[in-house]
Every structure is written in structure tokens, then in C-alpha cells.
């Protein structure tokens, strides 16, 4: 079965015709050509496909696309700073070497955004708990945790 749904994607309303059995990640990557969201395991273990739905981090590989109707979806493409520059989270990840192959990065960054939106001054433990569902096979996580701390500092601005 096909259906047309509308939802807010990165701030703008979109209308998409999709098949009932599609997952949100299929709708994003294949229907809307937004390939910034990555599919790793496809079963909710690795977090590479993390997007925010109504501000909450979810695995888009486990999210039925028809459920996106009327929701606010944020993907890595929607996370730009002013004048098409990198957002403060992306900048911190680049500056602190929290990226190697980059496959897990979009998911890491959106999980970080969800964390910082609710907790602007997270401890190391808060950061590790918030990123528990995001696997990175390159960096060993130390740089990632440091980048999240830096992003939090960037967000709070000079003290």
C-alpha cells in the first residue's frame, strides 16, 4: 500500500508518497535523497541512523515511516549553523578529531544535540550514557566525549 504523508523535515514541511512498509531511514535516504543519515546494523544497536523526532533521538531504522506523519524530523542535513557553516557541535567534532571514517558521525552528532538540548552542562558520565547507543569503530570514544564537552562549552558561550 502507498500513502502520502506530510511532516516537518529540518524545519520545512514536506509531502512524501511512500510505501507502507518503509522505515523512516528508507524514506529519508531513498525517497528524499538525504543520504547523510547512515544505516549500520539496521536493528537498533549501532545508532548510525539516529535522527531526532520531535526533539528525541530515535533509530530511524526501527521507525516506521508512516509514523512520521505530522512530526518534526531533524537529520544531519538540518543541523547547519548560520550562513551554511557547520553547527557548533559539528565544529567541535572536527576540531577535536572525533571523526575518523565518519560513518557514525551523523548519528553521534544528533545524539549529542538531543543531549545538549536537555542538559547544557553534561558530565562525562552523562555524555557516555547519552551516547551508549552510538557505536564508533575507529576513535575509541575519548575524542568524541571531549568533542561533546567542547560543544557544550561552545553552546554556553564565553563565561
Amino acid at each position: 500500500m502507498r500513502r502520502t504523508i506530510s511532516f516537518f523535515l529540518n524545519g520545512s514541511e514536506v509531502n512524501v508518497t511512500l510505501k507502507d512498509h518503509m522505515r523512516l531511514i528508507d524514506c529519508l535516504r531513498e525517497t528524499l535523497n538525504l543520504t547523510g543519515t547512515k544505516e549500520g546494523c539496521g536493528e537498533g544497536e549501532c545508532g548510525a541512523c539516529t535522527v531526532l523526532v520531535d526533539g528525541q533521538a530515535v533509530n530511524s531504522c526501527l521507525y516506521p515511516a508512516p509514523e512520521a506523519e505530522g512530526k518534526n524530523v531533524l537529520t544531519i542535513e538540518g543541523l547547519q549553523g548560520s550562513e551554511n557553516r557547520l553547527s557548533f557541535i559539528q565544529k567541535a567534532f572536527v576540531e577535536l578529531g572525533a571523526i575518523q571514517c565518519g560513518f557514525c558521525t551523523p548519528g553521534m552528532i544528533l545524539a549529542t544535540k538531543a543531549l545538549l538540548d536537555s542538559n547544557p552542562d553534561p558530565s562525562d558520565q552523562d555524555i557516555r550514557a547519552a551516547l551508549q547507543g552510538n557505536l564508533c569503530r575507529c576513535t575509541g570514544y575519548v575524542q568524541i566525549v571531549e568533542a561533546v564537552k567542547q560543544a557544550a562549552e561552545n553552546m554556553r558561550g564565553p563565561e
Binding site: G44, G47, T50, Q56, A57, V58, N59, L62, Y63, A111, A114, A129, A130, Q132, G133, N134
Partner: peptide, 9 residues
Amino acid sequence: IGSVQIRNV
């Protein structure tokens, strides 16, 4: 239970 992403749904 699981991760943030799992607990949210």
C-alpha cells in the same frame, strides 16, 4: 534498558 534511542520509543 537499551540506549536512549531505544528507550525513547
